[in-house]
């Protein structure tokens, strides 16, 4: 069985006005299908990319996989367990939380500006009771910082003392702190500059090899996705319109929407010829 299995996943948002106003105006309920019967699976140690434009439902899927939004129908299993199964025991839920972590788009909003880096990284260690001793925690924090290319000296700094790329490294370190199996990367580099983006993408690749991590990689940028993903799913308005390996998707796209995305994506290869 696949490590992550998403089966007939749907999520409907209720955007209608309060009941009483609806009755007065005689309106129907306004429902938005953000995600509509999406199926995909990821094998352990692989990267699956969800590509789509704004409103395609890719972030909603990420939040459901992370266990933060409840699916309207369908289910997700991670290593065989389902966050929203009615029979799930608390200790399994906790270990599931431990094994799924997330990296976000904005390197500014994803770190608490009032917390020092050391405190940020210690939080997951404490929350999951991974290491008891104060000394052990500190050692682990230093180890994490080194793994993402920062140093022990940064432990007492505040987030604002770092550049965007370094902050994203701190976020990666935080997500690694609980020794997760699955990391959801929600547009992890779209707020970063090109040279820094390359650093972060390479770091993610290295870490994947080192800890045999599974990635759910969410992005609007096909060029970024092509350097990261083993399989790519294209989302359009909540529907998975095409799913293929990068080879097939880039060489022989089947769906019109995929073709349109590929031709619209700016690519440095397509430098205009000498006029």
């Amino acid at each position: 069985m696949s490590f992550l299995l998403v089966n007939q996943l749907s999520r409907i948002f209720d955007l209608s006005e309060p009941w009483i106003l609806r009755k007065i105006k005689g309106q129907q309920k306004k429902l938005l299908k953000a995600v509509d019967k999406v199926n995909f699976s990821i094998e352990r140690g692989q990267t699956y990319a969800l590509v789509g434009e704004s409103g395609s439902g890719k972030s909603t899927i990420a939040m459901m996989v992370a266990g933060l939004i409840k699916p309207s129908s369908g289910f997700i299993t991670i290593d065989g367990y389902n966050f929203f199964s009615p029979t799930i025991e608390n200790n399994i839920k906790s270990s599931l939380r431990k094994s799924v972590q997330m990296i976000f788009q904005s390197p500014y909003a994803s770190l608490n500006p009032r917390w020092r880096v050391g405190e940020v990284l210690k939080e997951p260690i404490k929350a999951f009771n991974l290491i008891e001793s104060e000394n052990g925690q500190k050692q682990r924090v230093c180890e994490l910082l080194e793994q993402v290319g920062l140093s022990e000296r940064d432990i007492n700094k505040f987030p604002h003392e770092f550049s965007g790329g370094q902050r994203q490294r701190i976020c990666i370190a935080r997500s690694l702190a609980s020794e997760p199996k699955l990391i959801i990367c929600d547009e992890p580099t779209s707020a970063l500059d090109v040279s820094v983006q390359a650093q972060v993408l390479n770091l993610l690749k290295d870490l994947q090899k080192q800890f045999s991590l599974t990635y759910l990689f969410i992005s609007h940028d096909l060029a970024v996705v092509s350097t990261m993903a083993n399989r790519i799913g294209v989302l359009k308005q909540g529907i998975l319109v095409e799913e293929a390996s990068p080879n097939k998707l880039f060489e022989k796209p089947e769906h019109d929407y995929t073709k349109m995305l590929l031709s619209a994506a700016p690519d440095i290869k397509n430098v205009s010829k000498i006029p």
Binding site: A66, G67, L68, K93, S94, R97, V100, Q101, M102, F104, Q105, S106, A109, S110, L111, N112, E123, P124, A127, F128, C171, R174, S175, S178
Partner: peptide, 10 residues
Amino acid sequence: EYVISARMLG
């Protein structure tokens, strides 16, 4: 996002 990531820690 920092609040979301705190929620993910349960």
